[in-house]
Every structure is written in structure tokens, then in C-alpha cells.
Design a protein around this nucleic acid. Sequence first.
DNA 1: CGATGCGTTGATAACTTTCAAATTTAGTGG
DNA 2: CCACTAAATTTGAAAGTTATCAACGCATCG
Lengths: 234, 234
Amino acid sequence: MLANAAIRTDTLRRKETFRMGAPDHHNRVAPRQALAQSMQLMGAIMSYARNTEIFGENEPAEYVYLVISGAVRTYKILNDGRRKIGSFYFEGDIVGLQFEDTHSLSAEAVNDAKVLVVKRSAMTGLAARDSSVGQEMFALASRELRRAQGHVVLLVKSAQERVASFLLEMAHRRGTGDVIELPMSRQDIADYLGLTIETISRTLTGLEGKAAIDVPNARRVVLRDRTALRRLDA
Amino acid sequence: MLANAAIRTDTLRRKETFRMGAPDHHNRVAPRQALAQSMQLMGAIMSYARNTEIFGENEPAEYVYLVISGAVRTYKILNDGRRKIGSFYFEGDIVGLQFEDTHSLSAEAVNDAKVLVVKRSAMTGLAARDSSVGQEMFALASRELRRAQGHVVLLVKSAQERVASFLLEMAHRRGTGDVIELPMSRQDIADYLGLTIETISRTLTGLEGKAAIDVPNARRVVLRDRTALRRLDA
DNA sequence: CGATGCGTTGATAACTTTCAAATTTAGTGG
DNA sequence: CCACTAAATTTGAAAGTTATCAACGCATCG
């Protein structure tokens, strides 16, 4: 197995606003998690350019991140250079919340992204006083765990099954009907599914040939036959 | 890919004792998690024969389980019959704790096992009154998440790397030095690593040929050269 | 307009699975 | 305790899937 390109760009971050009060409408995010609600009251919004690092593996986990816009990927680099993507996060998702004091994965912006950054100590402090916040944190960790378990299941399937599952997952999470705009590159998808870009490309072409999907361009996929895809989504 | 044997035996469980007071010494477990401490005060011990179900996927998650002796596996059956093992749990490990109301995986005893069964409502009730319990639950979910992330990374590696990683993980978790007693079958290992039993067998033989391990019998592996194994544990 | 990055397509090689059979181990009844 | 049967594991040969290597196309950007 060969090294997948681990894009490492300079960290170009820009702090935009610091807000302790109510967020303005423009930046408010429909909270996917109840936790996100609380977070909006106590963070600062940061902008991350495409491919810049948000946090690094083994760095102290000082902050928790709520995606306002754009997409974020978490990943690990194996010791021979291969990259494994752990998860993608979109608007309303929370990244980096955990109990341990250091991050177990790195995180980068997939495309230009705005992220609400909240001190972890603020969250845990709140949780100590308000058990419902603690409950929300546990719930989030539970959901992340379930997602990771799903990812594990995904990785034992065939290439076609993985790609089909990935497309259905994206359609479900992005909620844009049958048209999926993919913010990530083929390399990102490959590193998420544990395949190569060539296999991703060939598999998409294959699914197109079966009339299960359309691929009008590299970053857009249209689901044509969800039943066929679900049949593959073992 | 073909169906892996999903052993499904009759559920032979036997409730042994019900204890609300202090547990007797014989059954007390050195708690791997602080949570286990609290659990020992409020559960009932159940015995599960080899290959019997402890809980099933999509069943209401009414209980949480602390392994007292033996080993437990969690797994999912894919719609074509393949089985994917999510995790193994040993003495002192907690199984089935989550926020959602139904289990996302099934659980079975790998060998004859004793398990302390605790009502989930008892735990969450306790957590609502005592934020440190809530914190412990979050910590446990976090650890499980990290384990699952490690599992995801494992599954993108080559067969040899997966087996090497598995052996190192077992050696670390069982803590019996260089001699590993495997409570699980080759099929279990295969379903955990996303490989076939034949590949597991061949890979072990290969590692033996490289003098990295000894396999005196099917259920015992001796680590001979951890450095070589770690080199493979990408 | 040429460079550059990203994606697609093709041919070949490597790795793992599948199918088959032999061998060892475990379980059961006498 | 031994003999016998079933189950689990190992080993071999062939087939299948995905990776690797290489070339080409397409778009973006200076």
C-alpha cells in the first residue's frame, strides 16, 4: 500500500468575531444537536481556508468546534504515510468533543469553513452544574460512537457497497434530496472508504452504467435509483 | 463475499444472585473503569453459556453489562449474512452503555461468562444526581469511541498488519505478558479483522515463520518479537 | 497558452477470497 | 479411559477484487 497524499498547507486561520452574547442571525446555525444551542452562546467564530488544520492529533484538546459553514474532516496519518479519514462534519455538527485531554485525530477544513470555537473547559464546567448538559455530551459521544461503528461495518464491504453506502450517507446527512454536492475530493472519499481514487472513480462509473446514479461532474452525484443503491448497502 | 457463520444458539442464561448490598469477594472485579465501582453495588450477576445472546440489536437497551469473567463480543449481521464483530470485552469492561434507547449491536458470550447486569435507568438516574457519574459515562463513551476509531484504522491495513495489531491489542488488554490466551475462535478473529479464517491462519503461520510469534496451539500465541510486530502495526 | 492539480481510463500485478481437502482438536457415549 | 463423530483449523490451488503504475483529458489559473 502506498502513501496517500496528506495535504498539509499552512494554517491560515482568521478570527472573526468574539461573541459572548446572542449570535447574530447571519451566523446562527440550526442546531443539529441540542448542545449546539448552548455552544452558540459562548464561542468565537473562526475561518479556516481549504485544507488548513483546525487541530492536530495529540495536541491538547482545549477547544470544541461547531461547524457553521463548510465541511471538516478528521483523520489520522499512519506511520507509513497513509491517511485514514475518520469522519466528515457539516453545518451543525460538533467536532472534537471528547473526554481525553488530547485529540485522537487531526482535523482540517475540507473547503473554506467557518467554525464556532468553544473552550472545552466551558462545556465541562457547564456540565458539572447542569446535568442536562452532561447528558447532551454523553448523547453526542454516543452518536459519534454509533457513527464510528457504522464506519467499521462499511469497511468490510466491497468497493461497490462502500461507495453506495457513502452516497446514501451523504444524501441523508446533507439532506438535499437526490442531488449530492460533494465538498470533498476523490482522495478524501478514498481515504474515508479505505480505497484508492482509481477505484472510487471506476466504481462511480460502474454505478452510472447501471443507471443507479448520474455523475454530471466530479463534485456532483445524482441518485437515480435508491433501491438499487440500498440493495448494495449491505 | 460469502456469509460468515453467525453462531446462534439457544439463549441459556441463568440468574445467579441478586445483590443490592456489597458484593462478595469472590465475584468482585478489579474495576477497569471507575464506573464499574458504582455498578457493583446495584446489579445482579448472570451466567451466559458460550455463544448465547446477551442482548440483541434493536432491542430496548434496558440494561448495562459489566463483565465479571469470560469474554463478550458485540456484532452486527449484515443483510447478506456476513457478521462483523464490533468489539471484544473482557473482565472489568462495560458493555452496552449508550444514550440511545435501543442497542445498535448484538452481544454474545464468547465463552462461558459471568456478567453483572445493571438497569440503565439506575445509572442514568444516578448520573442526574451525581455529576461525577455522568462524567464517567461520558468518559466511557469517549473511550469506546476511541476504540472504534482505532478499529476503523485497523481495517484499512493489510492482513499482516491487522493480525499484528490484533495480537498487540490483545496482549495489551489481557495484560498477560507475551503469552496470549485467545478466548475467541478464528472465525471471531476473522470477523473482527474483516478477513477470512483462512487468511488469519495463513498470516499467523507466516508470522511464525518470521519468528515474530509462536503458535503452540490454536488458542495460544506467544509474542517473540514485539518490535517486528510493532513495525507491522502501522 | 503553458503549467498544475484533479479525475478518468487502461493494463498489469499483488493480495485476499473462494473452493476443496487434509489434519487436528473437542465433545460424546460406551 | 477409549473410540467415534463433529467441529475447528490448517494447507493448497485457482479465481476474483482492488491496488499500482502509467497515460490521458479536462479544467483552472497565472
